[in-house]
Simulated scan of single mutants.
Amino acid sequence: MIPRVWLITGASTGLGRALTELILEKDEVAIATVRSPPVLDDLVQKYPSTRLLVLQLDVNKEEQIIDAFSRAKAAFGRVDIVVNNAGMGEIGEVETTDEGKGRALLETNFWGALHVTKEAIRFFRDENPVGAGGRLLQMSSYLGVVGLPGTGFYAAAKFALEGMTETLAAEIDPKWNIKVTSLVPGWIRSAMAPRLTWPPEHPAYAANPSLPTTALRNGSLDDVVTWKDTRRSAEVFYKAASLSDPPLHLLVGKDAIEATRRKIASLAEEVDKYEVWSEGLEE
């Protein structure tokens, strides 16, 4: 089989790094994009340029996104799979989170991901060999399905990514042979979590120690999160890229699945309870 060509954003650490390593071990081709290319020097020394291309890419800079795809085509002639993985985290109550930090998160996690998405779709359709198409794997989160205390801006970005991805999948022409999957994992061990810091606590929240975010502030994520292994999670996402008929949403992890099922049940209950309010509204 001809090795597939993957382009992965945010490949410096965590899941992006693990997936890059797995792709290379599988004798496929990885275009690993990072903000600081030297962080992958160990892989560059290990693999030839015919297998690994490391590119500088800040997803907040559209010209760098376009350049990355252009250099990918110059090096390999095509891109088969794009993993839209780059992102950042933020923690804090909606009321206490610094709005500047919230906007920066949305710029990266939604607008940056959107710009990668648009260039990936264009490239699959217009630059790849006719009919080859491609696969777009969007790194979402179950926090894009279920909002949890302390994750308001991160959840907002992932909810937006979920909505955009679902809409995009309904818009593209099937003859382009482009398949889109939103990866919806639970908590995966990464370099992001240790860097999260809480904003100053609002006294109104501090007054009630039973509030979810108050308890989180006084403990740690390890108290409430069951972490999933980064490498094994990468193997699941790698497997998803080989499905002939991939799902639009792929939930990964029991925490993601259980939280989503609770959300579905609660939503269905509310719909049933208030359905009668919609009677007689049609003109």
Rank of each mutant, 00 (worst) to 15 (best):
M1V: 14
P3Y: 04
W6K: 02
G10S: 10
G16T: 02
T20F: 01
T20A: 05
L22E: 05
L24T: 06
E25F: 10
D27V: 02
D27W: 05
A32C: 09
V39F: 07
D42K: 14
D42M: 12
L43Y: 06
Y47A: 05
L52F: 01
L53K: 07
L53H: 01
V54M: 04
Q56G: 06
N60M: 11
K61A: 15
E62I: 12
I66K: 03
D67T: 12
S70W: 11
V83K: 01
N84M: 11
N84V: 15
M88T: 14
G89A: 02
G92M: 03
K101D: 10
K101R: 04
R103K: 09
L105N: 13
L106D: 02
T108I: 10
A113R: 00
A113W: 00
H115V: 13
I121F: 06
F124N: 06
D126M: 06
N128D: 15
P129S: 08
G131L: 09
A132W: 15
G133R: 10
L136E: 00
L137E: 03
G144M: 11
G144D: 13
P149Q: 11
A156Q: 13
M164Q: 13
T167Y: 07
T167Q: 04
A169D: 12
A170K: 04
E171W: 04
D173R: 04
P174C: 12
K179C: 13
L183N: 04
M192T: 01
M192A: 06
P194Y: 07
H202T: 15
A207F: 12
T214F: 02
L216V: 12
D223I: 09
V225M: 01
K228Q: 15
K228E: 12
A234P: 00
Y238W: 10
P246L: 11
P246V: 10
P247G: 08
G253K: 00
K254T: 14
A256M: 05
A256G: 03
R262C: 15
A265N: 05
D272I: 14
K273S: 15
V276R: 14
L281R: 13
